[in-house]
Computed example of a mutant assay.
Amino acid sequence: MPEAALTGVSDDATLAARVRDGDIRAFEQLVLRYEGAMFRLASRMLADRAEAQDIVQEVFLTAWRRIGQLQDDAAFSGWLYRMTTNRCLNVLRSRQLPVDADPDAAESPRVETRPEHAAQVNGQLEALTAALGQLTPEQRACWLLREVHGRSYEEIGEIVGANATAVRGRIARARAQLAEVMQPWR
C-alpha cells in the first residue's frame, strides 16, 4: 500500500477494508479516530479512568482480531460503540454495587477564573456524575450514547440490543431521574 494512499482522510469503510487485508497503518488511523470517543464513553459509564483505559485497549485488540467478522465495513464505528458499551455493561453488572462518583472521571470543563464559578461548576459535575451512577447501567449507556455521543435512537438500539422504542423509554426515564436530581442546580 503506497504511503500516499493513507495520507488523505479515508472513510471508515475504506480503512476497515484495508485493516481486513492486514494494513496496520489503516488500523492506526481508526484507533486515532475513535480512541477518544470510546474512552470518554467508558470513563463516564464506569467512573473509573484506569478501568476505562483497559476496556478501550481490549475493544481495539478485539477489533483487530475480529475485523473479519464485521459484515459491513461502513458500520465500523457502531461496532466499536457496541463492543465498548457491552464491555462496560458487563463490568457494571459484575460490580453489583452503585458506581461511586469520581469527579476525575469526567473531562474538566472550561472554567472562568472566578473561584466561586469554578466551585459551582465542579459541584454540578460531581452531582451529575453521582446522578449518572444512580441510573441503571442500561439507562446510563443509552443516555450517554444519545446526549454525549450524539447517536440516533436506532444506532443506540443496535449498540445495546434493544428496539428504538425501548431506547427512547430508557432515555426518557434517565432524563426524568437526572432532571429531578439536578433540580437544585437550575
Rank of each mutant, 00 (worst) to 15 (best):
G123P: 09
A118L: 05
D102V: 09
R114E: 13
Q120T: 14
R87G: 04
R151M: 13
L144R: 01
I156G: 07
A118Y: 00
V148G: 00
H149A: 09
V148F: 07
G123V: 15
G133I: 10
D102I: 05
E158N: 03
N122D: 12
H117K: 15
A105T: 11
G133K: 01
Q134F: 05
R140H: 07
R87C: 02
S108M: 05
V121K: 02
V111W: 00
V160Q: 02
E116L: 11
D102E: 13
C88Y: 02
P137F: 03
G150Q: 08
L97G: 02
H117F: 04
L132F: 05
E138R: 10
H149E: 15
L97P: 00
R140S: 08
E126P: 02
E138H: 09
S94D: 13
V160P: 02
A105H: 02
A105S: 14
G150Y: 04
R110K: 03
S152Q: 06
N122L: 15
A101S: 12
P137S: 05
V160A: 04
L135S: 07
P103A: 08
E158R: 08
H117R: 15
P137M: 02
D102S: 10
P115E: 07
L132T: 05
A131Y: 10
G133N: 01
W143E: 10
D102G: 03
N90H: 03
W143S: 09
L145Y: 00
T136W: 10
V91R: 04
A105Y: 01
N122Y: 13
R146E: 13
R146F: 06
D102T: 10
L132Y: 07
Q134D: 15
V99W: 03
E147F: 14
P115R: 13
S108C: 05
D104P: 01
E154V: 14
R93G: 11
V160Y: 00
A130L: 14
G150T: 09
D104E: 10
P115K: 14
V148L: 12
A101N: 03
R140K: 12
P109R: 14
